[in-house]
């Protein structure tokens, strides 16, 4: 069994009365000969690495390789516990955890690329926080990660998840779409709702450029992982409420690819445009590489 479009996936889900993650597990077994149990066990390892990276980012003193980030995730978590949270604590915990993973990544810590290292904070930040809030067991969270990978697979197949090809929309946008679909399935939404949530996510940040200072996965990547987590939660909330994406997922992904291709090279991970070329951005770049 295989599928390359969301429309085909939806047909399979409806025909067999299965969730997205169940269809994806069958596809994986078909492609790789791995048993369902082995797939689940392997994904549990990824979930454990995600948890460890959050823990590390929120408890240890982190300094990134380029020296631009470290310690901000803790600040957000601290405020969510001690002050009147503007976003509500669920959102601020998710934001903080996404930032924590990104800080660990930038300091040569261990993470799970999801779908890339530059966007690696969003999925763990969202999934772990939803698990905590609604007391969802690991074995279900693992299913959520498999739902997420289905969305990422469809984007990789029909567009791209690389910032160098499609800009930040392709990285943090894809990660947010993956996380949104996972949340919808974890909260008992339908496959159609999950795909709507993913489509809404991408639409929300269509055209976002990739312009990291000094070309490093630090600034503005960390705050874009935070907004990615928020984007995922917002889109999931809308889809679970019955809000539909007027433009279907497959068409949104095709569009994301076209928009990415039409971005100038300077705004696709080359550090030759956007924030990287601000006076401060240039100064920091010089400082980092002259050292």
């Amino acid at each position: 069994m295989n599928f390359t479009k969301a429309s085909e996936l939806l047909e399979l889900c409806n025909k067999h009365n299965k969730k997205i993650f169940e269809i994806m597990i069958e596809r994986e077994s078909f492609l790789t000969d791995m048993s369902k149990e082995d797939i689940i066990a392997k994904m549990q390892i990824s979930l454990d690495i995600m948890k460890d990276s959050i823990e590390k980012g929120l408890t240890e003193d982190i300094k990134s390789m380029g020296g631009l980030i470290g310690g901000d995730a803790k600040k957000v978590m601290e405020r969510s516990k001690t002050s009147r949270s503007v976003c509500g604590t669920l959102m601020s915990r998710a934001i903080s955890r996404s930032m924590a993973v990104l800080e660990v990544n930038a300091s040569m810590g261990k993470i799970v690329a999801a779908p890339t290292a530059g966007a690696s904070g969003i999925l763990p930040g969202v999934i772990i926080t939803i698990g905590e809030e609604f007391k969802i067991e690991d074995r279900e969270l693992v299913n959520g990660l498999i739902t997420a990978s289905t969305i990422g697979m469809l984007i990789s197949k029909n567009a791209t998840v690389a910032g160098a090809e499609g800009g930040c929309q392709a990285e943090t946008g894809s990660a947010a779409a993956m996380a949104a679909a996972a949340v919808v399935e974890l909260m008992d939404g339908t496959p159609k709702m999950a795909l709507d949530a993913a489509a809404i996510c991408i639409k929300n940040i269509l055209g976002l450029v990739c312009d990291p200072i000094a070309g490093l996965v630090e600034v503005p990547c960390e705050s874009r992982n935070a907004i990615g987590a928020a984007n995922a939660l917002i889109s999931a909330e809308m889809a679970l409420s019955g809000v539909k994406s007027i433009i279907p997922f497959d068409e949104v992904i095709d569009t994301m690819y076209k928009v990415g291709s039409s971005l100038p090279m300077e705004l696709r991970e080359t550090a030759l445009g956007g924030l990287a070329m601000t006076p401060t951005g240039k100064k920091l770049q010089k400082q980092i590489f002259d050292n």
């Binding site: 994904m43 990824s46 930038a106 993470i111 690329a113 779908p115 697979m153 990789s156 630090e218």
Partner: peptide, 20 residues
């Protein structure tokens, strides 16, 4: 064909899949 663990993965030391 992309597998589950090509997307949620690789498990890696950061910061960059291409540069690290």
């Amino acid at each position: 064909d992309y597998t589950i663990f090509d997307i949620v993965g690789p498990n890696m030391i950061g910061p960059s899949s291409s540069h690290t």
